[in-house]
Design a binder for these strands. Structure first.
Lengths: 166, 166
DNA sequence: AATTTATGTCAGTCATGTTGACATATTTTT
DNA sequence: AAAAATATGTCAACATGACTGACATAAATT
């Protein structure tokens, strides 16, 4: 008999499970947890006409005021054209301002305004609350284990980036 | 003096940090960890002309073979129009096939083909390896704490969905 | 003076999501 | 049997946030 066409290939009726040597439990938990983790700020941002991209910029500008465009690109791992549009909207809306670099005048240092600081805090609050509640019955050692795990999930060469934050 | 225009508002030079009552450490760890967690399959998918959306469908079809379109929509929380395009590509490429529901003939049960099963496993392997390595020095109790934490991060009403998986 | 660097900008494309409207087949209800 | 509800599919238009490639400008470095 000739090879079956793709369309008529037989359906596989058995489910993939952890016996296949893959940690599906944690893969799925990570997916669902992250989805809901981002859902609170996503809803708030919609009221401003902003998206997740604005949130990320606003977050890091607040966490590292004065960082340059190049540094921000490095943290976010996106292209400058991609950053430009979203950053411009944040500047026009008065959440972020650019200041010419004092040493190197080609650089543009990015700072939050009072308005941008407030929004960043508003967006972070529900995420922090979700984390706090998720840790409510956890021991301090549990929190440490979770931090170690999350950090170990990051590519080794990018871990210095994390340590650069306050 | 009149109120400043948005463009000339003063830059805030102090960094947001954990003293502000927000758990920035875990917020950022979660962001970076998830970004890198998805990067391995993202690169592989590019070779097929597929994206993250294809991955999610393929994953759940392999984890719950025979699930219906409606069930898949419920898991993914996207619209049917959004699902349709991506699902069609997976069907045309021979990774997924539809079978008319035996009880209710309006339903379309979704199954992976051998090809789809292989791809799902290939995509899951680097993610599982990353998790395994991140847990290498963790105690079994640490893993339990991490699982509890991730599950607690999911909206309570959606947790049954997780328990539905093998 | 020439080159490199940091940033900005224009133009086009792609992937993935959205809403709204409508079509079809099948099942359930009346 | 007829009507209503349900599961799915499909068409069209649109938004967001990524991408590539090309080019412009100002400032710093060589």
């Amino acid at each position: 008999m000739a090879e079956r066409s793709a369309a008529s290939a037989k359906p596989i009726r058995t489910a993939l499970n952890d016996d296949d040597g893959i940690d599906f439990a944690l893969i799925e938990l990570f997916f669902f947890a992250y989805r809901d983790f981002t859902s609170d700020p996503d809803e708030m941002l919609a009221d401003y006409g902003f998206g997740r991209a604005h949130h990320r910029i606003l977050h890091f500008v607040n966490r590292r005021p004065g960082l340059t465009v190049a540094e921000l690109l490095d943290v976010l791992k996106i292209t400058k054209q991609s950053l430009a549009r979203v950053l411009k909207q944040l500047i026009d809306a008065g959440h972020v301002i650019q200041v010419q670099g004092p040493r190197d005048r080609r650089q543009r240092e990015l700072y939050p305004t009072a308005k941008g600081r407030t929004l960043a805090l508003d967006l972070a609050r529900p995420q922090s609350r979700r984390i706090r509640e998720a840790l409510r019955e956890a021991a301090p050692s549990d929190r440490e284990a979770i931090e170690r795990f999350l950090k170990a999930m990051v590519n080794p060469e990018l871990r210095p980036q994390i340590d650069n934050l306050p």
